[in-house]
Design a binder for these strands. Structure first.
Length: 275
DNA sequence: AAGAGACCCTGTTGGC
DNA sequence: TGCCAACAGGGTCTCT
């Protein structure tokens, strides 16, 4: 589940390896993975361009080219990006294959939910709408108690649902929302407007902590996520509730419970997290 | 504007 | 062993 820390890990690993590299060829092996423009224009638009830098906004990975075009990937549920030695053949779930000067870059996506976009210089045509309406990333200085509390005040949805709202908490997904709520001692079902200012302060702190630590641990490898060399991240060893239902809480030994909030599986400790 | 729910996708898992 | 439904889940869309 690539969320902010996973995409940031990919960005950090990609940047030194592909910056300055020319795109020799592009192959789209699954046309519906290319959201904009057409797969054909996508490939022709990339050919012979050169990677200038690799950036990220929330869960979007953005490869900026020397021409000014932006190659944008959203990994959704199961997308990964791997870099292989030049000449390596596409893999079982490779949907887009880019041949660079010294590497092959594969966008692997078993479930075909992820998307790629090629955006012209200084244009917004074709950009994913979500990218144009992102809130603040919790790791940014602007993500303050005041900011989050102001949003909480006007929302009566469960606090967990508000944490997953990309217009408010950019880059947060299911793993880190559950983990941050646990460390802040807040039950995910609590209505956002009932979260006190003091608790919101704690939540801001735990969100920042959890996301930063996950970046240092190269992300959480549960399910499909791997780093660009195919190896696992290691934050899964530091999870307290995510994917731990039925297991004893690491703090109080109470059994971790699972439930659904807004169609999302949610885990919490009934004792550590006050309702 | 907010909230609820459907839908997209397909590999994996679990039940019978 | 084989079949099939349920499940995973971020983002977008529709409807209220």
């Amino acid at each position: 589940m690539p969320e902010l820390p996973e995409v940031e890990t990919i960005r950090r690993e990609l940047a030194p390896r592909i910056s300055g590299q020319r795109i020799r060829t592009c192959r789209v092996l699954r046309p519906d993975i290319v959201s904009y423009p057409t797969p054909d224009k996508f490939c022709r638009g990339l050919k012979n361009d050169i990677v200038r830098e690799v950036t990220r906004k929330a869960k979007y990975l953005i490869i900026v080219l020397v021409s000014g075009k932006q190659l944008i990937f959203h990994l959704r549920l199961s997308g990964t990006i791997v870099v292989r030695p030049r000449g390596t053949k596409p893999e079982r779930f490779t949907r887009i294959a880019l041949s660079l000067d010294n590497h092959e870059l594969f966008f692997n996506e078993p479930r075909v939910l992820g998307r790629a976009y090629l955006i012209e210089n200084n244009r917004t045509a074709g950009m994913p709408k979500g990218l144009l309406s992102l809130g603040i990333e919790p790791i940014a200085p602007g993500f303050t108690t005041q900011y989050l509390h102001d949003h909480f005040k006007k929302r009566k949805a469960p606090v967990k649902a508000v944490l997953l709202d990309q217009h408010i908490c950019a880059g947060v997904g299911n793993i880190y929302s559950d983990e941050a709520l646990f460390h802040a001692g807040i039950r995910p079902t609590r209505r956002a407007f009932r979260v006190t200012r003091r608790e919101t302060g704690r939540l801001v702190r735990t969100l920042k902590n959890v996301l930063k630590k996950a970046v240092r641990k190269f992300g959480t490898s549960v399910g499909d996520y791997v780093r660009t060399d195919g190896t696992n991240g290691s934050f899964q060893d530091l999870l307290y509730v995510y994917q731990r239902e039925g297991l004893p809480c690491r703090i109080c030994r109470t059994e971790i419970k699972a439930m659904k909030i807004g169609n999302r599986s949610t885990r919490y400790c009934p004792k550590c997290q006050k309702s």
